[in-house]
């Protein structure tokens, strides 16, 4: 159920040894370009390139990647359907007056708008996936320290990061214990088990929090978290690749202008 988390993939992906700044620049740059673009094509282009990078350079299992994409994609499809039906425009293909003041219609403009939004979602998603699948959180902490983000924020992030896994472990253990005793055999039973699971997880995390404070105190906590570890050096290959990717995408953004699909 929870066996493989994003972080586990990031820990062993093919691009792990690439400088973190470069990877973040790739992802954030891609998102920015997706937002700047006013045509459907550049986000689609970015999504394709980054997906290629994720699958072939980072060597992420295609099935895992597809599964990761499905959930937000489902949301995107539903909202795009809404956009296409509700927003009006010229060249009406289909129209249904439900109420005197409200009608559903499919127009050239609404289709263009819908596809544009959908492509943007694809682009943004692939950029986020690129960051989260290639960059372990621990590397991001090092970079944040270099960027002079306030200590308190980094520290909270580190504790939250670790606590997620402890909580996750506990949830998995309780869940397994419930499954072993047929806790999810009927719908009614499932609801009951799920509620118990949430309650137990809450109490467990509360206890874990108290233990954490004690453990930190026992080691003389004065508000400092070690952030060791060097960023990998910027290498020529990845730097050129980043440059090529961003300039090519920027060129696509400029040349595609306002072009629409129909």
């Amino acid at each position: 159920m929870f066996e493989e988390l994003l972080e586990d993939i990031a820990q062993k992906n093919g691009l792990r040894e690439v400088n973190t700044n470069l990877k973040l620049a790739t992802g954030l740059g891609a998102i920015l370009l997706c937002l700047l673009s006013s045509s459907y094509f550049p986000p689609l282009f970015i999504a394709l390139v980054l997906t290629g990078a994720i699958l072939f350079l980072a060597r992420v299992d295609p099935k895992t990647y597809a599964e990761l994409f499905i959930v937000p994609l489902w949301f995107a499809v539903m909202s795009v359907a809404g956009i296409i039906l509700i927003s009006g425009g010229q060249d009406i293909f289909w129209k249904w007056d439900i109420l005197p003041s409200f009608s559903l219609s499919i127009t050239r403009d609404s289709i263009n708008q819908g596809i544009f939004v959908f492509c943007r979602v694809l682009g943004g998603m692939s950029a986020l996936c690129f960051i989260s699948l290639t960059t372990p959180m621990t590397n991001i902490f090092t970079v944040l320290r270099q960027w002079r983000i306030p200590e308190i924020i980094i520290e909270l992030m580190m504790i939250i990061y670790r606590t997620i896994f402890i909580l996750m472990d506990q949830v998995v253990q309780i869940y397994t214990a419930q499954v072993m005793r047929l806790g999810y055999s009927t719908v009614k039973e499932s609801i009951h088990s799920c509620a118990t699971l949430c309650g137990a997880a809450f109490i467990a995390s509360w206890d874990a929090g108290e233990d954490l404070v004690q453990a930190m105190d026992a080691r003389c906590y004065t508000g400092k978290f070690a952030v060791l570890g060097e960023n990998r050096p910027v290498e020529r290959g990845p730097l050129l690749a980043l440059f090529a990717f961003l300039s090519l995408s920027a060129a696509v953004v400029i040349f595609s202008g306002n072009s629409t699909i129909i």
């Binding site: 621990t138 504790i159 670790r162 004690q214």
Partner: peptide, 12 residues
């Protein structure tokens, strides 16, 4: 041991 290891990596 889980209560005691709270940093993201062993080294940290």
């Amino acid at each position: 041991a889980d209560d005691q290891i709270f940093a993201p990596t062993v080294e940290l």
